[in-house]
Structure formats: C-alpha cells, structure tokens
Amino acid sequence: MTADEARDRGRRIVVILTLLTTIVAAIVAGLEVEASTQGDRANRESERLVLTVAALQVSDTVVENYQNRLVTDVLTNQQEGLALDYAALQLGGKGDDAGATQVGYLAEAARARAKQAMALSDVYSDPAYAPAKEGDFPDLQGYLVARSNAEAALVAQENAASDSYNLWNSRSDTYVAILSVLAITFFLLGLAQVARRMRPFLASTAAALLLLTVAWSAFTALT
C-alpha cells in the first residue's frame, strides 16, 4: 500500500466514523428529548395530583364537619332525652304529674330530633359504620379512615408520578452528558480529517468514545 493509499484509507475511516457519530448523535438527541418530555409530563402529573390531594383534604374537612355535626346532634339529643326522662321521674316522685308529663313530652321531642339526625347521618345509616345495636356508638373512626383511603391512593399515585419524573429527569441528564461526549468525538474526528500524523491516534480515541457513548446510551435506555 502506498502512502497516498494509506492516507486515503485513513480519511475514509474518519469520514465513516463521523457519519456513525452523526447517526448516534441524532439517536441520542431523540432519546434525550423523549426522556425530557416524559419527565415534564410526569412532573406535571405529580403537580396536578398534589393539587388534587390538597383539594380532597379540604373537601374531606367539609364532609367530616357535616357528618360530625349530625353525630353530635344524635348524641346531644339522646342525652337530652335521657336527662329529661330523669327530670320527669323526679317530678313524678314529687307528685307533680302535670310537670312530669310535660317534661316527658320534651324528652320524646329530643329523641325525635336524635332519630331524625340518625336518619340523615351517613355514619348511622350506612350498615358499614352503623351501630350494631341501639344505643351503641357508630364506627366514626372507620368512616374517617375509609374517606382517607381515597386520599392515600392519590398520594400513592402522586409518589409514583414523582418517582417517574426523577427517573426520566435523571435519564435526560445522562443523555445530555452523552451528547457532550459526542461533541468531543466530533471535535476529535474533525481534527483527524486535517491532522495527518496524529490521525490514527485521534480517530482511535474518537472511535473509543463513540463506542463508549453507544454502550452508555444503551445502558441508560435499558435500565
């Protein structure tokens, strides 16, 4: 092989390597922008879910206040009924029958209020939380836990979206680093096209960097 032929062959290899680097750079750029896009979407979803969870917490407070008020109405009126019954008994014991009858009706009215509050309360009406027998306390804690389950599910989704964002963001950062290495590869190949004596060294270093970026990209995309 003459010196000219060897030089020509060297240049051909450099051009082929540059072409390969071009293709790899285009692919890595595509992977980077895809990772960045997915990261942005996961981030947006995570932010949307954070807002939704916050809104749900506020809603839960409103619903729980309403239900708590009905439960309070039930308990207060039940106790008022008992207290008035006791007063009626005392009046009867003292011989005040008219007063005892009147207070007895007031006790009945209090029990009617309690019964109506029970009918309107989810905690007393839903068999899942309603007291097993009359006079028992409803499972208010169970009701609150069931409501917070929906919140917990959303928080889990938010965490998953946040993890996804971190993963894609980290991938995107890696691809940017790979693109930087590819820029160095281009620089070395550019030098290799014009530098005659250093061409083998520059081209082989560029080839090594190109292989490294291909392996690094594949590892990043597959893990």
Binding site: V58, V62, N65, N77, A109, A112, R113, A117, L120
Partner: peptide, 27 residues
C-alpha cells in the same frame, strides 16, 4: 368546587336542622 361544596353542605346542614326541628314539632 370548594365554593360550590361549601354552599351545598351549608344547604344540607340547614335542611338537616330544619328536619330535626320538624321532627320535634311533630312530636
């Protein structure tokens, strides 16, 4: 939604209290 929710629960609360009073009145 919070404004609508607060209004709706306020309505429900008024209705519940009215129902309690109606039960008392009936007795």
């Amino acid at each position: 939604h919070h404004i609508n929710e607060n209004s709706a629960y306020a309505e429900a609360d008024y209705s519940a209290q009215a129902a309690l009073k109606a039960a008392e009145a009936k007795t």
